[in-house]
Design a protein around this nucleic acid. Structure first.
Length: 603
RNA sequence: GGUUCCGUAGUUCAACUGGAUAGAAUGGCAGAUUCCGGUUCUGCAGGUUGGAGGUUCGAAUCCUCUCGGGAUCACCA
C-alpha cells in the first residue's frame, strides 16, 4: 500500500503513453503546506520530452494520473509543480491498517534469514581516564545508529574496541605505583576509572616538573621531554609489559579491572551495550601477516632501511609506513589486521566505525589500503565521522580543566530533572524508586536528545544550560506529549470504555468527511515513519529520527490543544481520536527507542 | 604550505540531496486557555544563506575565485 510507488509507476506509464518516452524513475515530494495537495511531482525534467510548456505538461500528466489511479481524486498545477490530492479514505484506510500496531521490531527474531550483517564499532575508550562529553556523543551515536540499522532490517553486531595497552596506559600505572600509596577504589571511595584518571593526571604533572627542571639546566625542549626520568621509566615499563613481566601485568590487570568496573557503570547509566568487546592487548600484533601478502602482490614496498610502506600519492594521499625499520608495527597495521580478522569471523556486509572526524584521513587511508590489497568487502567499510563537541567557552582542554566528565554531567541532568519535577509538584504519589526512575528518564532523555538531534557530521556546541531545558525541541517536551496520550488512554479506560480497552484496537469506521485537516496531517506523518527510518539508516543519522519525532509531537500537541476528545458527542469519533492518539504514542515511543531514549507513563 | 570539512534569523539547529515565498526552537514583544495534565497553545518582529562571479527553467545545495574558522598531513595511538 505504497502510494508514492504507485504514482511514480503510473507517471512513467503516462510519459510513455503521452510522449512515447522511457523514463527510469521519477521523484516525488511532499506538497508544500502552502499549496493544496498531498504529493507533488515536479515536471520540469519532462519538458524536453513533452516539448510543451510546464503547465500544459503537468496538466496532461495530472489528468492521466487522475483517471488511472483510484486514490488520486484531484490535482492542481502551479508552474511546473503538479500537486496531487489523495482521497481522504486512502489515509483513513492506511490508518486502520496500522492502528495499534508496533512500528518497529528490534528483536533478532524479526529479521529475515538473509538480513545483511552490519558491525557497528563505537565507544572504543582508553583505559587511562574516565569518559567525557566527547565519548558521550560517540556512545549515543553508535548505539542509536545500531538500533536504527536493526529496525531497518539489518543483523547488527555492536562492538567495542578497548584501547587497554600502550604507553599512555603505563603512565597511570607508573604514577599509581610511585605515589598511589596503595590507594584503591574501595579505600578512596572513588569510581575506578576516576581513580586511574587521577594518576594519569598526576603523571603529567610530575612529568612537567621534571622536564622543566631539565630545561632550566639548559637542556633543549625536545631532549628534556625525552630524558625526563619518569618518561624513561614508562618506556621501561612498556617493554616489561610486552615481555610479559609478571608484576607489570598484574598491576595492569588490577588497574584495568578498576576501570572496567567504572566504565560498566557509565555504560549502564547511558543505556548503551555491546555484543562483543575487543581488547587491543589481544589485537595489537595483528596485521603483520598481511604485509607479506601485500609485498608479494607488489602493493607494498620495502625501503632501503627495511621499513615497509605503501605509496598512495597517485590517489592524492601520501606514503604511509606500515612496518618500522625494526619490524614493529604502527597503529594502522593493527587496524588492517583487525578488519581482516573481523571479516573472517563475521562475514559482515558492512562495518561502521564510529570515530571522530579528526581521523578522517586515517580511515581514508585504511579503506584504500584494504581495497588495494584486494579485499572486496572493503567497499562495505564506512567511517561514521562525527564532529567535535565544543563548549560555549571553546574546545575542551584537559590541561585547562574544561573537560566535562560524563558521570558528573549525567548526574547533573538527573538532579535538574528532579528539581524541576518536584517544583511543579509532579512527583507526588510516586514511590521513591519510581521517582528516581522518572528523573533519570527525563534527565538522560534531555541529554541524549540534545546531542542526537544534531547532524552527526557537524560539530556541535554543547551549552549545559540549554541542554537541560525542557521546552521547545527537547526530549522532555516529546516525553510530555507521550505522557498526555497515556493520560487520555487511562481516562478512557476509567470513564469511557470501562476496561474494554481492546476496543481501541478494533477497527472503526468514521466517514471521511469527519476527518479533520489536522488528523489527516497526523496520519500522513505516521505514514512517513518508514521512509524516515530508511533515510536515517541510509545516512547513519539519528538526527533524522529526532526531527521526525519532534515534528510529530509538536503536531500532536496542537491537535490536543484544539480538539477536545471527550467533549465530542459522537462516540465513534471519540474512539477514532483515541485510536489516533494511541498510535501516535506508539510512534513516539518507537522513535525515541531508536534514539535510546525512554518514555515515562507519567511525569 | 598540501589535503579536507564547515560558514544559514541575536543564539542553537532544519531545509526530503537542484525545486515553490529558506523553516523550527530559543530569546524579545503581544495575546489565549471555564479543557482530557500549563513542561501548553496562538500571533508579531527578526535573513542579501560569509562575499563575488558562473552553470539552468530554478542554487543554501553544483563549479571557480575570495574572506573567516576547524581538522589533518609521524617509522604517535
Amino acid at each position: 500500500m505504497n502510494i508514492e510507488k504507485k504514482i511514480s509507476e503510473k507517471t512513467i506509464e503516462a510519459l510513455q503513453s503521452l510522449y512515447s518516452a522511457i523514463v527510469e524513475k521519477v521523484s516525488l515530494e511532499k506538497t508544500n503546506p502552502d499549496f493544496v495537495g498531498d504529493i507533488t511531482l515536479v515536471v520540469f525534467n519532462f519538458l524536453k520530452i513533452s516539448k510543451k510548456k510546464p503547465e500544459e505538461t503537468a496538466t496532461e500528466i495530472g489528468n492521466y494520473l487522475k483517471s488511472n489511479i483510484d486514490e488520486v481524486v484531484d490535482f492542481n498545477v502551479v508552474k511546473g509543480f503538479l500537486n496531487i490530492v489523495i482521497d481522504d479514505s486512502f489515509w483513513l484506510n492506511y490508518f486502520k491498517s496500522i492502528n495499534g500496531k508496533p512500528f518497529i521490531d528490534l528483536t533478532r527474531a524479526g529479521l529475515p534469514t538473509n538480513a545483511p550483517t552490519v558491525m557497528v564499532e563505537y565507544s572504543s575508550p582508553n583505559t587511562n581516564k574516565p569518559l567525557h562529553l566527547g565519548h558521550v556523543r560517540n556512545n549515543l551515536l553508535g548505539y542509536s545508529v545500531s538500533e536504527i540499522l536493526k529496525a531497518a532490517g539489518n543483523n547488527v553486531i555492536k562492538t567495542n574496541l578497548v584501547n587497554d595497552r600502550g604507553i599512555h596506559i603505563c603512565k597511570s600505572m607508573l604514577a599509581w605505583k610511585k605515589w598511589g600509596g596503595g590507594e584503591t577504589p574501595e579505600s578512596s571511595g572513588l569510581k575506578g576509572d576516576h581513580l586511574v584518571g587521577k594518576y594519569y593526571v598526576e603523571f603529567d604533572k610530575q612529568f612537567k616538573v621534571q622536564s622543566s627542571k631539565l630545561k632550566a639546566e639548559g637542556v633543549s625542549d625536545e631532549e628534556a621531554e625525552k630524558k625526563a626520568p619518569i618518561m624513561l621509566e614508562i618506556q621501561d615499563m612498556l617493554r616489561k609489559w610486552e615481555a610479559g613481566d609478571k608484576e607489570t601485568r598484574a598491576l595492569w590487570e588490577m588497574m584495568n579491572g578498576w576501570v572496567y568496573k567504572g566504565f560498566d557503570a557509565t555504560y549502564k547509566m547511558l543505556g548503551v551495550s555491546f555484543d562483543k568487546t575487543y581488547y587491543e592487548s589481544n589485537t595489537y600484533l595483528l596485521g603483520k601477516n598481511i604485509i607479506d601478502d601485500g609485498l608479494a602482490k607488489g602493493v607494498l614496498k620495502r625501503r632501503a632501511d627495511n621499513s615497509i610502506y605503501i605509496d598512495l600519492t597517485a590517489d592524492g594521499l601520501d606514503e604511509k609506513t606500515l612496518l618500522r625499520a625494526d619490524g614493529t608495527s604502527v597503529y594502522i597495521t593493527q587496524d588492517l589486521g583487525t578488519a581482516v580478522q573481523r571479516f573472517e569471523e563475521y562475514k559482515f556486509d558492512k562495518l561502521v566505525y564510529t570515530v571522530g572526524n579528526e581521523q578522517d584521513y586515517h580511515f581514508k587511508v585504511l579503506f584504500l589500503i584494504l581495497k588495494k590489497l584486494g579485499y572486496k568487502w572493503s567497499d562495505g567499510l564506512y567511517h561514521l565521522s562525527y564532529g567535535m563537541v565544543e563548549l560555549p567557552e571553546g574546545k575542551m582542554k584537559s590541561r585547562e580543566g574544561t573537560v566535562v566528565d560524563a558521570d558528573e554531567l549525567m548526574q547533573e541532568m538527573i538532579n535538574t530533572a528532579a528539581a524541576t519535577t518536584k517544583e511543579l509538584g509532579k512527583a507526588e504519589g510516586l514511590s521513591e524508586t519510581e521517582a528516581e526512575t522518572l528523573y533519570r528518564t527525563i534527565g538522560l532523555g534531555a541529554l541524549k536528545y540534545f546531542m542526537l538531534k544534531i547532524d552527526p557530521k557537524k560539530k556541535m556546541l554543547f551549552n549545559p544550560a540549554e541542554s537541560i531545558d525542557f521546552n521547545g525541541n527537547t526530549a522532555p517536551f516529546i516525553q510530555f506529549n507521550y505522557v498526555r496520550i497515556q493520560a487520555l488512554l487511562r481516562k478512557a479506560k476509567e470513564d469511557y470504555f470501562k476496561d474494554n480497552l481492546e476496543i481501541l484496537d478494533a477497527s472503526t469506521d468514521i466517514p471521511s468527511a469527519s476527518l479533520l485537516p489536522k488528523e489527516k496531517q497526523l496520519i500522513i506523518q505516521l505514514y512517513g515513519f518508514n521512509s524516515t527510518l530508511n533515510q536515517a539508516a541510509n545516512e547513519y543519522s539519528p538526527a533524522v529520527i529526532a526531527n521526525y519525532v519532534y515534528d510529530l509531537a509538536k503536531e500532536f500537541s496542537q491537535y490536543y490543544h484544539d480538539t477536545p476528545i471527550f467533549k465530542e458527542e459522537k462516540k465513534d469519533l471519540i474512539l477514532f481520536r483515541l485510536q489516533l492518539s494511541k498510535t501516535i504514542g506508539i510512534a513516539i515511543k518507537s522513535s525515541m527507542q531508536l534514539l535510546g531514549i525512554e518514555v515515562p507513563e507519567r511525569m
